[in-house]
């Protein structure tokens, strides 16, 4: 059984799934009507790119992307949208 599992070469299947999901999430990011949904899809796209960096044997880049791309950039977008939401509520 273990020999059979080893012969499947799992890493290639993971790579294929990650590649397809990357493209699907990128399309979702740009086609969502609501801005906050777009931002959250960008965050998950960033998180998936971390998996691809690990598959490409770049652990340094993976850690940096996880902290910065998926965490800080998302919070900056969310803060901007929160500010706009606040202004709209003040006006109405």
């Amino acid at each position: 059984m273990s020999e059979f599992l080893a012969s499947l070469e799992f890493i290639n299947y993971i790579e294929m799934v990650v590649s397809v999901l990357l493209v699907v999430l990128a399309i979702f990011t740009l086609t969502m009507k609501s801005l906050i949904k777009s931002v959250l899809f960008l965050s998950s796209l960033s998180m998936l790119s971390v998996v691809s960096f690990v598959l490409l044997k770049a652990p340094d880049v993976a850690i940096t992307e996880a902290v910065i791309g998926s965490g800080l950039v998302t919070t900056l977008f969310v803060f901007t949208l929160l500010y706009v939401h606040q202004k709209e509520r003040d006006v109405s």
């Binding site: 290639n12 790579e15 294929m16 990650v18 590649s19 397809v20 990357l22 493209v23 990128a26 399309i27 990011t29 740009l30 801005l35 777009s38 931002v39 960008l42 691809s52 598959l55 490409l56 977008f77 901007t80 949208l81």
Partner: peptide, 29 residues
């Protein structure tokens, strides 16, 4: 596989950059 996925991501980002008229959407692209 990942090479073609990354090229597709570049294409999608460029298309979004050219067609979107919303500032936040442009920065997302």
């Amino acid at each position: 596989m990942l090479l073609y996925a990354s090229v597709l991501l570049i294409v999608i980002g460029l298309y979004g950059l050219l067609t979107n008229r919303n500032v936040i959407k442009i920065i997302l692209s």
